[in-house]
Design a protein around this nucleic acid. Structure first.
Length: 866
RNA sequence: GCGGGUGUGGCGGAAUUGGUAGACGCGCCGGACUCAAAAUCCGGUUCUGGCGACAGAGUGUCGGUUCGAGCCCGACCACCCGCACCA
């Protein structure tokens, strides 16, 4: 046996990457007549370096892309950059580098890193959302949406960071403070641009049912986020005029059946009625200020007492004219939901109960739990929200909750108050319109102009793109576009008089809401080419982190609908199949002083973790997802340079199911590398002898064994990749290699085996091709096959070899396995039964007893019951 | 609080969906090769008892259905994730 030198992964990988590129193997044409397959991984933010999460994500996507290509599909597998956003501006402020330069140099570096991974990407379709050619099309979409009534400008409460002088997204507010500045975030009323996503609430909800290849978890999260609830808007007549002149107060409720249990009304601190009342009551104003200050963090909500302020107003109960209810301003009512006002039924709502107890309001149960005694049933400190029968409720007595809701609604709908129905059935959603205004520089400018005479005027298409100015400064807080001396000065497109350009830019989630469509015709002078969108979408398999379960995935679903409405697409749903992969984790390390340590600074000596340089003891902490703050990160480049991309890819696919978190370990990486070396050695050792051999079936029992092994491996891996069970596919490859291994030494020179051995090695290379493409390509060439493996078809599977003609059946006696029997696959139950009862082992366990029953499941099991 | 998920050897995890629990990998133990080490190769590795054939126990806990349960049903425990004053 020859002992070749070790496999030099870096040389080999670079060589094949060049080869693929020269031959344009991964370039995809829209006109290709083969069936299409669109596989997409969520595109990265160009932070500067790829991390292990990217490696995992893109390794999975690449397996699918290469596999589908081998299966004869015309595969679209593009890559781009989610390139706008705050980090570029932070870098500009900290390092005096222009966001554009910072971003594009990051992209260049990361593109190189991704190419090192050997991904089968059509780089001709690469896009960055900060390219003018991209964002000008986005401006066009915005204008079309505007014309179609999908854009609104309205005033809303936003998180305002007083130090950075900018709006922050909810995710950027941590414990009530700006994530960057650490300043206490204020709630401000600002006029902002919105997309009318709520127009599609019902549709987005209903269509979730059709997304069968989405994780149930994500569909549920979206469903809860949209938050549909059916209820009733009820107007309560005030006994006098409200401070704002109103004569009634409208509340929203999902429990009209409990109306007879109402003991108060409450409105939000920002409710118009409350604001009007506050104008003549300074104590109320203080209370309102206190409410606004109240944090929205989980802890604040958990611990905050229910507080209220009696306005002195009284409202009439709709069905009990002589009963009046006090109207409070309360700290637990949200202006954003429903009408910003409720009626409180303490007996059947915990918050209302807490409130009622605090203010001494009556607690009247009106729903009697099943089997409860009405004479005894009382509410203590827990509201009753379960099922039951209505009582203490006049004409509703004896009805079910559902029936009572309907009766109340029907009665109040028919009754007029000030000439309008007193109540109206209403479906309410939690989903809010999508505020897209950001007071930032590094984003897509909103193509609008504010004119004193004409109002808000859209920029005409012929003036697009509205380009970001290059000369901006970051030497003071706030939006650099606002500080720019000339940029916002523009003539009104309608009247020609001096006007002001909109200086808000779009939320970066807008950029990522349609990039998947842009990939289908990335160089088009229009946002999309409808034919191309039609051809490629929906994405057959989308892969990314579950952290986007709501925002990005919901926005994209809305966006494609909006694009359909404006003629840029013809379908509703962007992603037919969604897969959310787990995170990459690593052990954490701390030194004696409690400071975090990088994994490369930690070594194991004599079974103990110590600092690599100082030898000081190191504490091993819990395994957590890789993060810079805890320093438990491993740089993919370091791994690729020492072990090669195939090792990194193989590791990421091995062992752990792709939806779960995977722990990166040094030992695991070495194990993966060992496998790469093993396959390489196996192929290289065999290649000289096999190169001239003609593939065939071989003859004899060993050849038969090999043939079965290869067809089974191919069938199994195919099945595993189709179901995204990469860890199982890996295990099947190991099994196959283990099965082949004993034959390698002598088989290559045996005329019985060599032909089938060669074929088996070809199968092996084709099977591992999607996962470790460089290794496979190297072996393909070594064995003398023509062309590139990357272009080769998936091996054909002979189904007849997948089953043996004989089977081994376990024999249980009273459910315990006691023996096995080898029988023809076709053996009849009767034959098996009599053979089993003859067996020595069986007789011994029967110990003279005669079986009560013998259960024979053909090709499965035999169970003898005594 | 509401919703969802997970629980299998020392570890990551398999188990054709009710039919041989622990595939495959990591780790560990032993052996071969070597002056030695690395690499590689061979063997072993759920636990308990036994030299052994073998026997007993075993998939978070308790109970149930079944000839047969990791898988189905009921009750519970632990951990993880999402949402959360949504009326």
């Amino acid at each position: 046996m020859t002992t070749p030198e070790r496999y030099n992964a870096r040389d080999v990988e670079m060589r094949w990457q060049r080869e693929w590129e020269t031959h344009g193997v991964f370039r995809t044409r829209n006109e290709d007549p083969r069936q299409k397959y669109y596989v997409l991984e969520m595109f990265p933010y160009p932070s500067g370096r790829i991390h292990m999460g990217h490696v995992r994500n893109y390794a999975m996507g690449d397996v699918i892309a290469r596999y589908k290509r081998a299966k004869g599909f015309n595969v679209l597998h593009p890559m781009g950059w989610d390139a706008f956003g705050m980090p570029a501006e932070n870098a500009a402020m900290q390092n005096k580098v222009h966001p554009r330069d910072w971003t594009y140099s990051n992209i260049a570096h990361m593109r190189g890193q991704l190419k090192q991974m050997g991904l089968s990407i059509d780089w001709d379709r690469e896009i960055a959302t900060c390219d003018v050619s991209y964002y000008q099309q986005q401006q066009r979409l915005f204008l079309d949406f505007y014309k179609a009534g999908l854009v609104a400008r309205k005033t809303a409460k936003v998180n305002w960071d007083p130090v950075d002088q900018t709006v922050l997204a909810n995710e950027q507010v941590i414990e009530g403070r700006g994530w960057r500045s650490g300043a206490l975030v204020e709630q401000r009323e600002l006029t902002q641009w919105f997309f009318r996503i709520t127009d599609y609430s019902q549709e987005l909800l209903e269509a979730l049912d059709g997304l069968e290849r989405w994780p149930e978890k994500v569909r549920l999260m979206q469903k809860n986020w949209i938050g549909r609830s059916e209820g009733l808007r009820v107007r309560f007549e005030l006994t006098g005029r409200g401070p704002d002149g109103s004569s009634d107060l409208e509340v929203f409720t999902t429990r009209p059946d409990t109306l007879f249990g109402a003991s108060f009304l409450a409105v939000a601190a920002d409710h118009p009625l409350a604001i009007a009342a506050g104008e003549r009551d300074s104590a109320l104003r203080d209370f309102q200020a206190e409410c606004r200050k109240l944090g929205t963090s989980a802890l604040a909500i958990e611990t905050a007492d229910k507080k209220g302020y009696d306005t002195g107003l009284r409202a009439r109960h709709p069905f009990q004219p002589d009963v009046t209810l006090p109207v409070f301003v309360a700290n637990f009512i949200l202006m954003e939901y429903g009408t910003g006002a409720i009626f409180g039924c303490p007996a059947h709502d915990q918050r209302d109960l807490d409130f009622a107890r605090a203010y001494g309001l009556p607690v009247t149960p009106v729903v009697l739990p099943p089997d409860a005694d009405p004479a005894v049933f009382t509410i203590a400190d827990e509201a009753y929200t379960g099922p039951g029968t209505i009582y203490h409720s006049s004409f509703l007595d004896g009805l079910s909750i559902e029936d009572a809701k309907d009766v109340v609604a029907t009665r109040l709908e028919k009754r007029a108050l000030d000439g309008a129905p007193q109540a109206e059935r209403q479906v309410n959603y939690r989903l809010r319109d999508w505020g897209i205004s950001r007071q930032r520089y590094w984003g897509c400018p909103i193509p609008m102009v504010h004119c004193e005479a004409c109002g808000t005027v859209p920029v005409p298409e012929r003036f697009l793109p509205v380009e970001l100015p290059a000369d901006v400064s970051f030497d003071r807080p706030g939006n650099p576009l606002d500080h720019h001396p000339t940029w916002s000065k523009v003539d009104c497109p309608e009247c020609g008089k001096p006007a002001r350009r909109e200086t808000d830019t779009m939320d970066t989630f807008v950029d990522s809401s349609w990039y998947f469509a842009r990939f289908t015709a990335p160089h088009s002078p229009a946002p999309t080419e409808v034919e191309a969108v039609d051809h490629w979408l929906p994405v057959d398999q989308y892969i990314g982190g579950v952290e986007h379960a709501i925002l990005h995935l919901l926005y994209s679903r809305f966006f494609l609908r909006a694009m359909k409405k404006t003629g840029h697409a013809r379908l509703d749903e962007p992603f037919a199949g969604l897969f959310t992969q787990g995170m990459v984790t690593h052990e954490t390390y701390k030194d004696e002083a409690g400071a975090w340590l990088f994994p490369e600074d930690v070594v194991v000596r004599d079974g103990a973790h110590v600092h690599a340089k100082t030898g000081a003891p190191v504490t091993v902490g819990p395994v957590e997802s890789m993060s810079k703050s805890k320093k438990n990160v491993v740089d993919p480049t370091a791994i690729i340079e020492s072990f090669g991309a195939d090792t990194a890819r193989w590791f990421m696919l091995s062992d752990t199911p792709p939806e779960r978190d995977i722990q990166w370990t040094e030992a695991g990486a070495e194990g993966a590398h060992r496998f790469i070396q093993r396959v390489w050695r196996m192929v290289q050792d065999a290649a000289p002898a096999l190169k001239g051999v003609r593939e065939g079936d071989g003859s004899g029992a060993d050849a038969e064994t090999i043939r079965k092994a290869m067809h089974r491996a191919a069938a199994a891996v195919e099945n595993d990749i189709e179901s995204l069970a990469f860890n199982r596919a890996v295990a099947r490859v190991y099994e196959f290699v283990n099965a082949l291994h004993p034959y390698m030494a002598t088989g290559v020179s045996s005329s019985d085996i060599a032909p089938v051995l060669k074929k088996a090695l070809r199968y092996l290379l084709q099977i591992i091709g999607p996962m470790t493409p460089h290794l496979a390509e190297e072996g393909w060439a070594a064995l003398g096959y023509d062309g590139l493996l990357a272009r080769a078809a998936w091996p054909e599977v002979d189904r007849s070899l997948l089953v043996d003609s004989t089977v081994t059946l376990p024999i249980q006696i009273n459910g315990k396995k006691r023996a096995e029997i080898h029988v023809e696959r076709s053996a009849s139950p009767q034959e098996i039964e009599s053979a089993v009862l003859e067996m020595e082992d069986v007789r011994r366990h029967l110990d003279g007893r005669s079986p009560k029953k013998v259960i024979v499941v053909p090709q499965r099991i035999v169970n003898v019951v005594v």
